[in-house]
Design a protein around this nucleic acid. Structure first.
Lengths: 208, 208
DNA sequence: TAGATTGTTAATCGATTAACAATC
DNA sequence: TAGATTGTTAATCGATTAACAATC
């Protein structure tokens, strides 16, 4: 299959989540405009996304929910679960831990890392917190695929380099430090920029 | 001034942050390619962004850092500080509180809201945590502009409605619930979708 | 049948990048 | 002067939306 647009992948994740809820209440088929309404997007966009992943609906009946969920799974999931580590077990790291353990997903949280001796060695939601010194060892031993960076920004680049050298293939950088990465997919999420952006568009002169 | 593209606004936030650091070490002028290198973007993009905000550099000398920082401020900041509330004082809410108090910015955190009686009435980094029952009252009293939603997803839509009715003009929704908002700027940040997206692009068949 | 719906191509929109003129 | 840099327009790219054919 061709590589999908980033936005389509994000929406597939959304589709799966809302469809799973509908399956629980025994809905079997759904129209593109129903999905669109749930996500506040257009029906065309839904149909186009489904076209891209090669899913066919039934005219006048819509899409079979169970089938669609399982197709999305074969496309965005790995045959094996992705193994994930959280580097920096502060408040944000803890929030991510909760997200990952509360939400059923194809991601398997395998390790936490921190520098604080009081945290190192503890078990949190069944996941052990290791010293950051052991990053290369643990990443290689458990073949960890993805890392979430929630550590102080000044250590972000160095740690990212270590992670990639040890075999990590995807990184989400939640620190305010801007990283340069070779050989892995990088997603930056900058909370401050996001806050300042919303503040800008909140200005009174932009009200419609 | 014309309304700026979203991406430009985000980058302006980045420019300001890195330039402020350079000012501290007494750098006076900077070239577009230097800024570009720091942010891993192209020099053209930098120049175009600066063109959009009407900033002029000096040929062969570059841009005056102090001037540029202050111009960015007049564009993305408000004359008065934006007043911000965090709704849902869990781990993520706490992480955001730390971000906002550690980073000097034009955002002024005014209130926290939660349902937990043990949290209500406490003061955290000088900010009081109120009961969510008091949202309309407190939002109006302090004229809060922006709200960050970090509460359980099932309450997100209802709370967002209350916030907008009480005068909030910008919302960042960190819950996995997809919201529909009228009369305010809305930014969704869906951690699960973000994780699943990175997982998808982490797949071995996409390595270059 | 008429109306509703899927599936797909073409047009549009927003953002980035290429090209290049101006000039110190 | 030649080379480096800014500033700006035009071209390109990626994503969304419009238009519409197919068909139940």
């Amino acid at each position: 299959m061709e590589i999908l647009p980033e936005r389509t992948v994000e929406r597939l994740s959304h589709y799966r989540r809302v469809l799973s809820k509908l399956l629980e209440i025994n809905k079997e088929y759904i129209y593109s405009h129903e999905i669109a309404k749930l996500l506040h997007i257009t029906p065309v966009q839904v149909r186009r996304d489904l076209m891209l992943i090669g899913h066919s609906g039934t005219l006048r009946k819509g899409y079979r929910i169970r089938e669609l969920i399982s197709l999305i799974g074969t496309i965005i999931d790995n045959p094996e679960k992705y193994k994930v580590a959280i580097v920096g077990f502060g408040k944000l790291g803890h929030a991510l831990l909760n997200y990952l353990t509360e939400n059923e997903s194809n991601l398997h949280l395998v390790a936490l890392f921190d520098t604080n001796p009081e945290k190192i060695g503890t078990t949190n939601n069944n996941v052990i917190c290791y010293s950051v010194d052991r990053i290369p060892e643990i990443i290689k031993r458990y073949k960890i695929d993805m890392a979430l960076l929630t550590l102080p920004p000044q250590f972000a680049q160095l740690t990212a380099n270590q992670l990639v050298e040890s075999g990590v293939k995807g990184i989400i950088n939640y620190t305010s430090s801007i990283l340069s990465i070779e050989g892995a997919f990088l997603e930056q999420y900058d909370m401050i920029a996001s806050l300042e952006k919303v503040a800008y568009f909140t200005k009174p002169e932009f009200y419609l």
